[in-house]
Write a protein that binds this DNA or RNA. Structure first.
Lengths: 111, 111
DNA sequence: GCATATAGGTAGAACTTCTAGGTGTAAGGG
DNA sequence: CCCTTACACCTAGAAGTTCTACCTATATGC
């Protein structure tokens, strides 16, 4: 068990998961790998964050799960975005943009 | 008491406070106004978030407090950045940059 | 035979933010 | 004179997310 750094996701985890799932059906373990890979190892989504998040998103009706066989021949839970989930993703993208713009305003203030 | 929206600060509050205090001694109430003003009302730092945060930052040795008279002639606690606080701000700025870059990587992935 | 990677999960701690209250002074309008 | 608003401080407890630390099980490679 190697885990050097812990990178706090600061409320972005849900959005990142929704975004990755938006590319097509994918199982939990692969989601965390994908996020880590695309972010060039900045984000390390540990399983203790991942699975609770997935269940949260499913409970809210944003994700839908289905058991299927994975590449490796094992059973895995594949997640898909629901219509509500797609809307939620759009909302979160917009919010993120606004948030980072607002932060930028403050950080760039020179005064 | 009017409070329409609640804007979640997603872990950026400490950084924003440090940044605002970096401009010079300022008291709590004014910090929240400043953040709201500069962010064009995106961030509304409620007092229940503000004061615990200020005490947290003071406890960690990043801020230093001193009672002085404010513009309005009343006593107020003026906060200043310590040397440690200035270092912390730099660290947080770097982290924020990395975080938003990493998020951008994922959001801009077209796959 | 053992470690690692894959795949799922939970419980509980830690931390931040929000809700909802509290104190008190000063200024301005009715 | 009372009421409201702005200023300025504060706390307790709820809610929410993320982290730490575990658990299970199979397949593959050394």
């Amino acid at each position: 068990m190697t885990q050097e750094k812990s990178e706090f996701l600061k409320g972005t985890l849900d959005m990142l998961i929704l975004k990755v799932v938006a590319f097509g059906p994918i199982h939990g373990y692969a989601i965390s790998q994908r996020i880590q890979q695309i972010s060039k190892d900045f984000f390390q989504v540990h399983q203790g964050s991942l699975y609770p998040a997935l269940h949260r998103l499913e409970d809210r009706g944003w994700l839908q799960a289905e058991w299927k066989e994975s590449d490796t021949g094992r059973e895995a839970k594949f997640y898909t975005l629901t219509r509500k989930g797609r809307k939620q993703l759009e909302t979160e993208l917009l919010n993120w943009e606004r948030l980072s713009d607002a932060v930028a305003l403050i950080l760039r203030t020179v005064e």
